[in-house]
Simulated assay, not measured.
Amino acid sequence: MTVAVPPDAAYAAVSDVRTVGTRSPETVAVTLRGSSVPPAVGTRFTGHNRNGRFRWSTQCTVTAAEPGRVFAYDVKSGGLAISSWRYEFEPEGDGGATRVTETWTDRRSPLMHVLSTIVTGVRDRPTHNRRTMRVTLERLKAALEE
């Protein structure tokens, strides 16, 4: 998704995890542990999620924090790996616009595949995440270009 702001501005919006709930259809709020704003590698936060009547939380740790370039974090539940999320920011044209790429890597074990379906109500997580990622990026674009 291309947004009409420089990479540093796009990065600042995405890396402020406290605002994820304004863009994500599934993560409704984030609790940042500590006061690292913007987050640095090792910063931890809790994602509070909802899918219809299903509600759950995840523990996240920032794994990459390069302003204007990349922001990434790993997600766990009950100490078990769930996923990795990564946002890359590439300047376009004269640098006044940015291509934002969001990727998700499923890191669940077979047991976690079963448990996560029960906890979240989502049977096909890859399809679900592709849909919600589009929504998240569209909301990011709208907010940054207001």
Rank of each mutant, 00 (worst) to 15 (best):
L137E: 02
P7V: 02
N49H: 07
E90T: 07
T120H: 03
R107P: 12
S24L: 10
A65D: 09
R107Q: 14
T132D: 06
W104F: 10
R50S: 11
V122N: 01
S84M: 02
S77D: 04
D16P: 00
L115M: 05
S84E: 07
I82V: 10
R123E: 06
E26W: 11
T136M: 03
W85D: 00
E145A: 13
V5P: 09
V17C: 12
R23V: 15
A4H: 15
G21F: 11
T22H: 15
F71D: 00
T136A: 07
F45I: 07
D8K: 00
R44G: 09
H48T: 04
T117P: 03
T98G: 08
R125A: 08
T2I: 15
P67M: 13
D16A: 03
H128M: 02
K141L: 14
M1P: 02
T46C: 03
D124P: 01
P67N: 14
R108W: 03
V75Q: 02
R123M: 06
P91W: 05
A65W: 05
W56M: 04
M1S: 10
A142T: 15
E92T: 06
A142W: 14
A143V: 15
V70K: 00
S116N: 08
R107Y: 01
R99W: 02
L80F: 11
S15N: 06
R108I: 03
M133T: 00
R86I: 01
V3W: 07
V100C: 10
R139S: 10
T98L: 12
V70H: 00
T43S: 12
T22G: 15
V100S: 00
P91F: 04
S24M: 11
T31S: 12
A9D: 13
R18L: 13
T63L: 12
D74Q: 07
V75W: 06
P39A: 04
I118C: 10
S36M: 13
V135N: 04
A143M: 15
K76R: 12
T103D: 13
H113E: 14
T2A: 09
S83R: 00
S15Y: 03
P67D: 11
F54I: 03
